[in-house]
Amino acid sequence: MKAEPVTGAGFDPAFIPGIAVPSPALGKEEPEDAEPEDPAVAAEDAGQAEEAGTSGEAEASEEAETSEEEAGEGPAFEASDRRARIVADRKGVRLRLDEESCEFRWDEIAAVETESPRFGKRYTVTVHTPDRRWYPIEIEATAKSRFKEWDEQLDAVLDAYFEDGD
């Protein structure tokens, strides 16, 4: 029996539409009379972009701190490993794999599904949207006993914030 390959946001962050910025080279052609860019100007622009990236990281860490403070008002769930992270709180569900991330507000979610493997230590959380898309992410647990704890924490968050359309 041949197993089908698994696809989704948990395995390929580019799977999420709109998460990656389209390349500016696609669909645009430079005019033939365009002058090549001066290397000194390109190096200066790269330096400015690098400085902006450093300040962007500081802003991101400040945002994370404020979101943690705001999340303290109700139940919250957070699980992470060396590559992946999932956070569910009053704002919604946020998934992150390596450097890619996505965020779902509670009104954008149709269902949240969890799966604990029979063997192994990979806990899977799948976010389903109303337009029939799903975004799975796997978190590696330090021990299988964490699965029950994570299920209870996530259930508390879902009970508090997720409103089923039934």
Score class of each variant (00 low, 15 high):
residue 1 M to P: 08
residue 3 A to W: 09
residue 5 P to S: 07
residue 5 P to M: 05
residue 6 V to H: 08
residue 7 T to S: 06
residue 9 A to F: 15
residue 9 A to H: 09
residue 10 G to E: 02
residue 14 A to C: 02
residue 14 A to L: 11
residue 15 F to H: 13
residue 17 P to K: 15
residue 18 G to N: 09
residue 20 A to K: 09
residue 20 A to Q: 10
residue 21 V to K: 14
residue 21 V to D: 10
residue 21 V to N: 07
residue 22 P to Q: 14
residue 22 P to L: 05
residue 23 S to G: 06
residue 27 G to W: 11
residue 27 G to D: 04
residue 27 G to Q: 08
residue 29 E to A: 10
residue 34 A to L: 12
residue 35 E to Y: 07
residue 37 E to Y: 04
residue 40 A to P: 00
residue 41 V to E: 11
residue 42 A to M: 13
residue 45 D to L: 12
residue 45 D to R: 14
residue 45 D to E: 14
residue 47 G to R: 15
residue 49 A to F: 02
residue 50 E to S: 13
residue 54 T to V: 14
residue 59 E to V: 06
residue 60 A to K: 12
residue 63 E to S: 09
residue 63 E to G: 01
residue 66 T to Y: 07
residue 67 S to R: 12
residue 67 S to H: 02
residue 67 S to K: 06
residue 67 S to A: 08
residue 68 E to L: 12
residue 69 E to C: 00
residue 70 E to D: 15
residue 70 E to G: 03
residue 71 A to I: 05
residue 71 A to D: 02
residue 76 A to E: 12
residue 78 E to A: 07
residue 78 E to S: 11
residue 79 A to V: 08
residue 80 S to R: 15
residue 81 D to R: 06
residue 81 D to L: 05
residue 82 R to P: 00
residue 82 R to A: 12
residue 84 A to M: 09
residue 85 R to G: 00
residue 90 R to D: 04
residue 90 R to Y: 04
residue 92 G to V: 04
residue 94 R to W: 01
residue 94 R to A: 12
residue 96 R to N: 05
residue 98 D to T: 05
residue 102 C to H: 12
residue 102 C to W: 15
residue 102 C to T: 10
residue 105 R to K: 13
residue 107 D to F: 08
residue 107 D to A: 06
residue 108 E to Y: 11
residue 110 A to D: 14
residue 110 A to T: 06
residue 110 A to N: 08
residue 112 V to P: 10
residue 114 T to L: 03
residue 116 S to D: 14
residue 117 P to F: 02
residue 119 F to Y: 05
residue 122 R to Q: 13
residue 126 T to Q: 03
residue 131 D to L: 01
residue 134 W to M: 13
residue 136 P to D: 11
residue 136 P to G: 03
residue 136 P to H: 05
residue 139 I to P: 05
residue 142 T to G: 15
residue 143 A to N: 10
residue 145 S to C: 02
residue 146 R to E: 13
residue 147 F to S: 11
residue 147 F to R: 14
residue 153 Q to I: 01
residue 154 L to G: 06
residue 156 A to E: 14
residue 156 A to C: 04
residue 156 A to D: 15
residue 156 A to R: 13
residue 158 L to G: 09
residue 159 D to A: 15
residue 159 D to N: 15
residue 159 D to W: 03
residue 162 F to H: 13
residue 163 E to T: 15
residue 164 D to C: 00
residue 165 G to A: 13
residue 166 D to F: 06
residue 166 D to V: 01
